[in-house]
Design a protein around this nucleic acid. Structure first.
Length: 469
RNA sequence: GGCGCCGUACCCAAGCGGCUAAGGGAGUGGAUUGCAAAUCCAUGAUUCAGCGGUUCGAGUCCGCUCGGCGCCUCCA
C-alpha cells in the first residue's frame, strides 16, 4: 500500500518514497526536559507513533530517532531571559542534571501510559556535544559562520535557500516586534551555533570547544544527532507546526550547509491542541498533563482516543466534554471487545468480507493518517451482522495494532484484577440472594456499595457479573 | 502590518467537484431489567457562517463579508 503524506515542504500530499527500498528513517523532535510535558506536547508523539506503526505495517523497516533536549535553553530569544533548566533546578532545589533525568523519566512514563512505543534510538543532547561541535566546525570550515560577541553564529545570507520550506520569503516579518534585536547578528534570521558569552549564573552545563567554554545553540542538536543516527539524508522529519519557521528552518540550513546535500524528504507537522482560552502552554499556565487527566479519573487512553478522533493537521480544542465523549466511546469499544471475546477467540485469518473492511481501513490510514476515518471503520465493522465474532475480533485487533488503543489488553485487564477481591464475590452472592427474596432495598444497597468501590454490577440473563469503573 | 488555517446537526468530527453529507458522544422512543447499568433496535442536517461567481453539477474551486484561531519569540 502506498502511503500518502502531507509534506510541509511543498505543501501538498505526496506518495511516500523511501530513500532506501523497504526502509524508513524517521526523526522526531523530542522534549526539553525542564518540566512535565503537557497534553498538547503529547499530540505529536501520539501521531508519530501511529505513523511509525503504519510504516511498519506497510512493510518498512523503521528507524525512529528522538532527541532528548537536556541542555538548557533560554526562556526568551537572543541573549535575554533565563535558562529554563537552571530556573527549574533552582525552583526545585535540584541540580540541572537531576532535573533533566527527573523530567525525562516522567516523559517516558507519560508515553507509556498513552501506549506510545519507544523510539528505536533516543538520544540525549548532553551525550552528543562532540557531534555538535563537529558540525559547527564543518560549518565554520565551509564559511557559513562568523563570531560575534563571543558566540558562533550561522550566517543565513550564505544559504540562499534559507526559509524555503517555511515560505519565509513571502512574509514580512515584524523584526523586533516582540523581542529585542540581537545586535551581534548580521542578519535578522541568523542564529547561534555555539554560546560562550553566557551571563547565566550556575553554569553547570558547559563544555570545552574550539571557541571557548560554552554550550551549543538551540538548533544544532537535532541536526547533529539526526545525521549521526540516520545519515546525511533521511526520509521523514516530524514535529509541531510551530517549528516550521524557526527551528526546522534553521535545522535545514545547518544540515544542508554542513552535509552539502538535501537533508530531509518529507516534513510532517502536527497542528496544535488548544484550550478554550487559546494555545496551551506552560508560560500561559493553561496546561494539563497526562497525570492531571488520570487524577480526574480518566484513562490516558481516553486522551489517545480523543486525539485519534481528529486529524493531526487540524487544530483541536481540548475540553472536558470532548474527553468525556472520547472516554465513553473508548470504554464502549473495550466492552464490545470483551463481549466478543466471551464468544470465542479471534480468527487468525481474515475472510473476504473482513478483508474488505481491512482494505478500507488501510486506505484511510495510508491517506495521510486519517485516523477519524479509521475509527469510523472500526465502528462500522462492529455493526455488521454477517460478520462472525471471531472475524470481528481479528479485524479489531489488527486495526488496533495500528491505532494503539490497547483494546485487547484493556478488555482482559479487568478480569485479572477481578479475582483479587474475594469479598466482592461474597457481596454479589448476598445481593443475588436478596434479589431472590425480593429484598431490593438490600440488593440496591450492595450495588451502591460496590459502585463506591469502583465496581459496577452487571445483571445479565446468564447471571450477575461485574466490571471495574 | 505580513503569512497561514478554520467556521459541517446539541457537542466533537470526517469530507479535497458528482451515489441517499462518515463516525463518535449526548438526547429521544422501544426491547430487556424488580429498578438500574450495560446491550440491542429505531431516531437526527433538503443542508455545510453569509452573499455573489465559475461549472452540466460545489460543503468541496474563486471573490467579498462576518466570526474564530495560529504564526511572525523559546514553543508540540
Amino acid at each position: 500500500m502506498e502511503m500518502h503524506l502531507y509534506n510541509t515542504d511543498g505543501r501538498e500530499s505526496q506518495v511516500f518514497k523511501p530513500i532506501q527500498e523497504g526502509k524508513a528513517g524517521l526523526y522526531c523532535c523530542g522534549p526539553t526536559v525542564y518540566n512535565y510535558a503537557h497534553i498538547g506536547n503529547m499530540r505529536p508523539y501520539t501521531i508519530q507513533d501511529v505513523l511509525k506503526r503504519a510504516l511498519t505495517y506497510f512493510g518498512y523497516d523503521v528507524t525512529h530517532v528522538m532527541n532528548i533536549t537536556d541542555v538548557g535553553h533560554l526562556t526568551d530569544d537572543g541573549d535575554e531571559g533565563e535558562d529554563k533548566m537552571i530556573k527549574a533546578a533552582r525552583e526545585k532545589g535540584m541540580s540541572v542534571w537531576d532535573i533533566a533525568r527527573f523530567f525525562e523519566d516522567a516523559f517516558w512514563k507519560d508515553l507509556e501510559r498513552l501506549n506510545i512505543s519507544r523510539p528505536t534510538v533516543s538520544c540525549r543532547a548532553t551525550d552528543h556535544i562532540e557531534d555538535m561541535i563537529g558540525m559547527v566546525k564543518t560549518l565554520e570550515e565551509k564559511g557559513y559562520t562568523y563570531i560575534s560577541g563571543g558566540n558562533v553564529y550561522f550566517d543565513t545570507s550564505k544559504f540562499p535557500e534559507y526559509g524555503k520550506m517555511a515560505l519565509l520569503d513571502r512574509q514580512e516579518l515584524k523584526e523586533g516586534a516582540r523581542v529585542g534585536v540581537d545586535d551581534n547578528k548580521r542578519n535578522y534570521s541568523d542564529f547561534v551555533l555555539w554560546f560562550t558569552n553566557s551571563k547565566f549564573e550556575n553554569q553547570a552545563m558547559v563544555w570545552d570547544s574550539p571557541w571557548g567554554k560554552g554550550y551549543p545553540g538551540w538548533h544544532i542538536e537535532c541536526s547533529a544527532m539526526s545525521t549521526k543516527y540516520l545519515g546525511k539524508q533521511f526520509d521523514i522529519h516530524c514535529g509541531g507546526i510551530d517549528h516550521v519557521p524557526i527551528h526546522h528552518t534553521n535545522e535545514i540550513a545547518q544540515s544542508e550547509a554542513a552535509n552539502g546535500c538535501r537533508w530531509v524528504n518529507y516534513w510532517v507537522h502536527n497542528e496544535f491542541l488548544l484550550m478554550k482560552t487559546g494555545k496551551m502552554s506552560k508560560s500561559k499556565g493553561n496546561f494539563l498533563t497526562v497525570q492531571s487527566l488520570v487524577d480526574e479519573g480518566y484513562d490516558a487512553l481516553d486522551y489517545r482516543y480523543l486525539l485519534l478522533g481528529g486529524h493531526y493537521r487540524s487544530q483541536l480544542v481540548f475540553s472536558w466534554e470532548s474527553l468525556d465523549a472520547a472516554r465513553s466511546a473508548r470504554e464502549s469499544l473495550v466492552r464490545k471487545v470483551k463481549a466478543l471475546l466471551q464468544e470465542g477467540e479471534a480468527d487468525r485469518e481474515l475472510g473476504d468480507k473482513a478483508q474488505a473492511y481491512m482494505n478500507a481501513f488501510e486506505e484511510h490510514l495510508a491517506d495521510d493518517l486519517n485516523t477519524p476515518r479509521c475509527l469510523a471503520d472500526m465502528w462500522s465493522l462492529l455493526k455488521d451482522k454477517e460478520l462472525s465474532s471471531s472475524q470481528k475480533l481479528a479485524l479489531l485487533f489488527r486495526m488496533d495494532s495500528l491505532l494503539g488503543l490497547n483494546l485487547e489488553e484493556s478488555a482482559g485487564a479487568e478480569e485479572e484484577t477481578a479475582e483479587l477481591d474475594g469479598d466482592v464475590e461474597a457481596l454479589i452472592d448476598e445481593r443475588n440472594q436478596a434479589r431472590k427474596e425480593k429484598n431490593f432495598a438490600r440488593s440496591d444497597e450492595i450495588r451502591d456499595e460496590l459502585l463506591a468501590r469502583g465496581i459496577r454490577i452487571v445483571d445479565t440473563p446468564q447471571g450477575t457479573t461485574w466490571e471495574k469503573v
